[in-house]
Amino acid sequence: MNESAIVLTIFAAIGLGTPVVFATVGEIITERAGVLNLGVQGTMLVGAVSGFWATWVSGSLTLGVLAALVAGGAVTFLHAFSSITLRVSQIVSGLALTLFGTGLATFIGRAGETPLVGNPSKKQFEPIFDGAIAELPIVGPLLFGHDILVYLSWVVVAASSFYLFQTRFGLALRSVGEDPASAEAAGVNVNRVRYLHVIGGGALSGLGGAYFSLALVPSWQDDLIGGAGWIAIALVILASWRPWRALFAAYLFGAAGRINFTLQTLQIDIPSNLLAMLPFVLAIVAMIILTSGKRARLLGAPAALGIPYFREQR
């Protein structure tokens, strides 16, 4: 593989990884608040179709992105309400959201006189730099060859990492995920923190979905995103609940997808199904090796993850 092939692979990996970056960071924020959201897959699909639809009717990519954020946050409200206020099983509620979201997205895409499904997007995100700077060797494509959402994803990663680990709000968030009763005693409104971050995480997942329908694929089809939502849940563990690691984990996942494609064009026969298993196998291995018992704490798994908080029963 020569230099340009490596650059091309990394470039493609960034593109393929970007939707997963948004969703993984969204799920990290959610889980840091102590809430497990298995609805990412459904949320991403709803975001993808909403963003596509909004751009379709308005011709504006900005409105598309806003619609994806709002729709992702809105459907995730269902999960927030069931798991925080009603305190029901987060697993069942999250899976319900995935099922509902998948059905809703497919339904929106196929309903009406002129269905959206099968259409290319009216507009799509293009690289923002052109001219000499984008044609520099290596750094041209890798640093200046992307559309604005890729740069936004870097901002999201940097900002969420700073927020989580350097700010008072981030400390409060992490304390809610670790030990909600103590957080409450220290004056943190546990339920409010959980609501805000679960819904915010859902909005990011919605944006990740829209990256498929407005930039990566730019079109709408049923199940456009493959299993990206499930990949995001796996990557949260591989990234040990840290945004920067999520960025690199997502790009590694993107590179695996790209290498798969490259190998196929070179007629090197590594079965694509076996390669597709890889992130899931790695997530299981990481879970077993790293998150068993006490080591889970070292890894960064929020201690109260998945446990409903009963204020009255403190």
Partner: peptide, 23 residues
């Protein structure tokens, strides 16, 4: 001319309400 996905949507919605009903 109604999408088959109506069914998935209904199933998901039933589950969400059932989950809420548990409360």
């Amino acid at each position: 001319q109604v999408p088959t996905a109506t069914v998935t949507m209904l199933q998901g919605a039933i589950l969400i309400f059932a989950v809420a009903g548990e409360f």
